[in-house]
């Protein structure tokens, strides 16, 4: 399924090491590390302000880290401009969709295809994935509903033929039914050989869709693992930063051990 094997000889597609990111004087990320292998769906979860979107934006190149490295396909891309990363195959669907409001649906897709890498995804294939788009191609992006915009935003990223697709808060502001429909398209995306790194507020949704997950809290990693390995209680504890009764703080970056459950609660 994924390229990550126990002996660790498969090469990660994306590797982040000890990333420290500041917003002005505020430290948003304190030494985050992660590795995403080809074919995985890697989910970043955590409360508001945990740093998930900051992490994703830094990987996409919209934010410069204070220290740490980002490697993609073996090469160091820490200093690479965002448009060059997109050209190399790291394409992000930004938080809040961010379609071009004065452009039509079709034009939005065409812009996405402007610097596309060679690959299976074309505008026509995106229209197959979202058939409703066919009649609405000329409609202005600003006149569409949130769910429709989200689909267009995904389509805009797909036509660039990414290798690593970054999805930032897909579910934000959308009804659960719509969210499910959007996530239902994920398998087809994966089939075409795209690896997904996503940020998701909705933990249940993330657990359903992801092959691996990492929880952030106030810029630190509090949990890493697969949905099969971690329990709900562990996730909750990592999400909210609950410590055990002795005041032991959450695991720092690099730690992959899930938290031990708080005293008095059945594991």
């Amino acid at each position: 399924m994924s390229g990550r094997d126990q002996t660790g000889t498969g090469a990660p597609l994306l590797e982040v090491r000890d990333l420290v990111v500041h917003h002005g004087q505020l430290r948003a990320l304190s030494g985050i590390s992660l590795a995403v292998y080809p074919g995985e769906v890697y989910a970043l979860i955590g409360a508001n302000g945990a740093g998930k979107s900051t992490l994703l934006r830094t990987i996409a190149g919209l934010h410069r880290p204070t220290s740490g490295t980002i490697s993609y396909d073996g090469r160091d891309v820490t200093g690479l401009r965002p448009e060059k990363r997109a050209g190399a195959g790291i394409v992000m669907v930004p938080e809040g969709r961010r379609l071009f409001p004065t452009l039509s649906l079709e034009d939005n897709l065409k812009v996405g295809a402007s610097y596309a890498r060679p690959g299976p995804w074309t505008i026509d294939r995106v229209l197959e994935l979202f058939p409703w788009m066919k009649e609405r191609r000329r409609q202005r992006a600003s006149q569409m509903s949130g769910g429709e915009q989200q689909s267009v935003a995904i389509g805009r990223a797909l036509v660039a033929n990414p290798r690593l697709l970054l999805l930032d808060e897909l579910s934000l502001g959308l009804a659960p039914v719509i969210v499910q429909r959007i996530y239902a398209t994920l398998p087809q995306v994966l089939e075409s050989g795209i690896t997904v790194l996503l940020v998701e507020q909705d933990v249940s949704q993330a657990l359903r869709a992801a092959t691996h997950l990492q929880c952030l809290l106030e810029g630190h990693t509090t949990l890493q693992g697969t949905p099969a390995e971690v329990t709900r209680e562990q996730v909750e504890a990592a999400y909210f930063g609950v410590t055990d009764g002795n005041g032991v703080s959450p695991a720092s970056h690099g730690g992959t051990t899930p938290l031990s459950p708080p005293n008095g609660i059945d594991a």
């Binding site: 394409v91 992000m92 930004p94 409001p101 812009v111 660039a160």
Partner: peptide, 10 residues
């Protein structure tokens, strides 16, 4: 319309 989003598209 949106400079950053354009950057993300390459």
């Amino acid at each position: 319309d949106d400079r950053e989003a354009a950057q993300l598209s390459g």
